[in-house]
Design a protein around this nucleic acid. Sequence first.
DNA 1: AGAGGTTACGGGCAGCGTAAGGATC
DNA 2: GATCCTTACGCTGCCCGTAACCTCT
Lengths: 293, 293
Amino acid sequence: MTFEQLRTFFWVARLGGVRRAAEQMHLSQPAVSARIAALETALGAVLFERAQSGMRLTKRGEKLLVYAEQIHRIQEDIKANIVDPAGLEAQLRVGVSETVVQSWLPEFVAGLRSEYPMVDVEITVDVSHNLRDSLLNRSLDLAILMGPISEFSVDNIELPAFELVWIRSPALHVDGDEADILRSTPVISYARNTRPYQDLKTKLLENVGSDARLFPSSSLSACIRMVATGLGVGAFPLHLIKRQLYNGELVAFDPGWRPDTLRFTASFLGEPKSHLAESVAHIAKDVAAAYME
Amino acid sequence: MTFEQLRTFFWVARLGGVRRAAEQMHLSQPAVSARIAALETALGAVLFERAQSGMRLTKRGEKLLVYAEQIHRIQEDIKANIVDPAGLEAQLRVGVSETVVQSWLPEFVAGLRSEYPMVDVEITVDVSHNLRDSLLNRSLDLAILMGPISEFSVDNIELPAFELVWIRSPALHVDGDEADILRSTPVISYARNTRPYQDLKTKLLENVGSDARLFPSSSLSACIRMVATGLGVGAFPLHLIKRQLYNGELVAFDPGWRPDTLRFTASFLGEPKSHLAESVAHIAKDVAAAYME
DNA sequence: AGAGGTTACGGGCAGCGTAAGGATC
DNA sequence: GATCCTTACGCTGCCCGTAACCTCT
């Protein structure tokens, strides 16, 4: 009898079939079958009735399920109370969206490396939508994105939000009302398949009308540089453009409205729970809070 | 983390050293070392302080020990409540003494085979002294012998006792008192390194004096046949010679005293507990009781 | 030197995935 | 035939034992 056999037994019992358990556990179906067979041999007892509709627990199986759950709980306790994430030679696949890359990512990685030197970190940058898919896909352990992810299986830690401000090149010629800039000048924005893009599009239509032109770009720093060179204007996180505002490369303006503040979360799967991911999510929160002052 | 790792951890903690745990678990010392190292890696935590005198638990180790014991208890519960010995393809090495061979062994084996058809049974015949050693040695799983075995690690199930009666050949010429037979005729007995031999020797010296001659033989059936042919007399279990008494091949006599009744037990190791051995011990008890009527 | 534990290395076996094989509706 | 689960089989990787090594008394 092994822990893996018991865990497999648990999923087959809960999902009522080898096939479904195999899918849940990311194993081939014969592998699950073999584990159950091995467990039944080890205990010398038949645990399931094989029906056409799947597997149904026998009386012995019902009793074993209780023990399997007890053992699972103790394992969780061990993971929570004994395991030291700092000592684990784990790998952690972190996905971040570009806003984070351009703001507190370096500090975050530094904090992560100093807290968990043994952990092998792999950073992926993508738009929030893809990060969400990857997380649910289990190809990421932690995603820092515009959240939260509304799935029962995901835990979300809220991070400090980014307030957006309208910026333009100081060289840009302005006639009369600042609100008219948006009519006369293209608006450079986040990539098309992002929440800020959609928000901006809606709000532009509402506040400016169909005259407004929207130029999305997948590179945030490219956006800002384009704004600085006068190719257009845009609304970007204040913290990312502080330097340029200070030294005059960019100037803020106010057309009378703003896109929504960008809300970020650090999100990770709750089942199976990764205490490492959870802890790193809190590092992200602390680092981000410090970055925002 | 595996059950084996936890069990190994438990023994190293309890015995305070890799070497002692390896001995207890019948493993090589590096194997135990490797299991502990693997567990520590899996948990990312140091569980032992390596001192010259052996291994001492760290704080984390102390906490883990509690969980390990809980898991061990649940495993025991599973073994007791779920495992079906009849379904186990186990092997069972049974040692029996010759008195049993000559009495209810066939019925016992038949009962065992019908109750546990999947179990691979191996029968060894030897004197009780050697059976005891083999059991403590773990080269037997169950021993049916003149017991009990007074070791804390052994469980003993008491079996029906064999009453001994004095027998002789009907052809043997008897002068006067039957008690004098023992003075004039050799006494044929169980083998030298057995309890009945020692008992008989003591009692003969006490009741008959140094004139008495004792001829031990390691074959019980040989003893009885020798008595039947008049080579000597002897005290043997009543149940083994009923047939010969009935058809006149042998006759009982009474010198006024008897050797001790032979007390048998079915004995097996309590740690690790084999529910199969325990259950088979009870089969032996039932079969023996039926044999004795 | 001796009693402790760890590292190195070759071999055997357990357990995986792919592919084919029943059974039952 | 569709939908289950099991069997067959080759392969990889883990884990054991032997042997050599390290460290402290």
